[in-house]
């Protein structure tokens, strides 16, 4: 099963023609289907894709209408405009929130991936006392609803002098993303042949050198998945950010709540903001999507 790495994200392996021919005579093989089956397949995929995409497109559609478009979607086409975007981008603090979120999410991604890769590698390659409980602890940390302890956590950040700082929020986000990432990466490193490490040792590299120079470049798909996961964790989180950050360090997810104020929700601005927020997430997604499948599986299989 470790073949995944070599295969990378290549398309589904093509069954040799001879084998297909042989199979056809007996029962229907995997790689062929009747026209009817083809239509059914495409129909299913189309419906599923439509369900997956529709809510997002709906937000996009509403955002292009007047600010009350959510009440009368039929009106949108007659009043297409960018008014909502104009308000969000030019007349609110949105750009600043956006910048804050980019800083926090980028830092969480880089830091999260680095520390989880280093830990994942150590657990994958080195048998040291504690490596078993370590992975178990990672899983356990995901089981406790930390937000019930938000007040003690607040006091802890105060003590560490990390309140209302980017680094404080980044570290908190790392506690959410790193356990999963380390788990995934450990699994991924397991699929990378140990001979590579030995070659590094022969060349006189330190274990860290081997990890950094030889193994990391091979682990791109795994790193891509963890980067994606870390980014999304930081990009969409609300509760911690709301509690720990103050103007002007407010992140997007918290900032746009002011559009949805209790007494007078401004859904127009909210939809426009949602679309703008989704763009960076989509970009990160496009960058990593070709590695997602391989990266996630190797981690999952071996984790």
């Amino acid at each position: 099963m470790s073949t995944t790495t070599e295969r990378g994200s290549a398309a589904v392996p093509v069954v040799p023609r001879a084998a297909r021919g042989a199979a056809r005579r007996r029962v229907r093989g995997r790689a062929e289907r009747s026209t009817g089956a083809s239509i059914a397949l495409h129909a299913t995929l189309l419906v599923a894709s439509a369900i997956a995409v529709f809510p997002v497109l709906w937000i996009l559609f509403i955002s292009l209408g007047p600010s009350t478009a959510w009440q009368q979607p039929n009106e949108v086409l007659h009043h297409l405009g960018l008014g909502n975007y104009r308000f969000v981008l030019l007349h609110s603090h949105f750009p600043r929130w956006f910048l804050n979120s980019v800083i926090v999410a980028a830092a969480t991604t880089v830091l999260g991936v680095l520390v989880s890769a280093s830990a994942g590698y150590a657990v994958s390659r080195m048998r040291f006392p504690g490596h078993r409980p370590l992975m178990w602890t990672f899983l356990v940390t995901q089981m406790f609803p930390m937000a019930v302890l938000i007040v003690p956590l607040y006091n802890l950040l105060v003590q560490l002098d990390l309140l209302d700082t980017y680094i404080g929020l980044v570290l908190v986000y790392c506690t959410i993303s790193v356990p999963f990432c380390a788990w995934m990466l450990k699994g991924y490193f397991d699929t990378i042949p140990r001979e590579i490490d030995e070659a590094g040792r022969v060349d006189g590299l330190t274990p860290f050198g081997t990890f950094w120079r030889l193994v990391m470049p091979l682990a791109k798909p795994g790193l891509a998945v963890t980067a994606f996961f870390s980014f999304l964790t930081a990009w969409g989180e609300v509760a911690y950010s709301n509690q720990f950050m103050r103007d002007p360090h407010t992140t997007l997810a918290v900032g746009i709540r002011t559009f949805a104020a209790d007494q007078r929700a401004d859904w127009g601005s909210m939809t426009a903001a949602s679309v703008v927020i989704a763009i960076p997430a989509a970009i990160v997604f496009m960058l990593v999507q070709k590695h997602l499948v391989t990266g996630l599986t190797a981690g999952g299989t071996k984790g």
């Binding site: 938000i150 105060v158 709301n242 103050r246 103007d247 007494q263």
Partner: peptide
Amino acid sequence: YQNVDFGTVEQKFKAAAQSGKG
């Protein structure tokens, strides 16, 4: 001047108030 969301200000203020910071 800081604008704080009305819906979450209570929780935010109480956490800050009891710790003496923020």
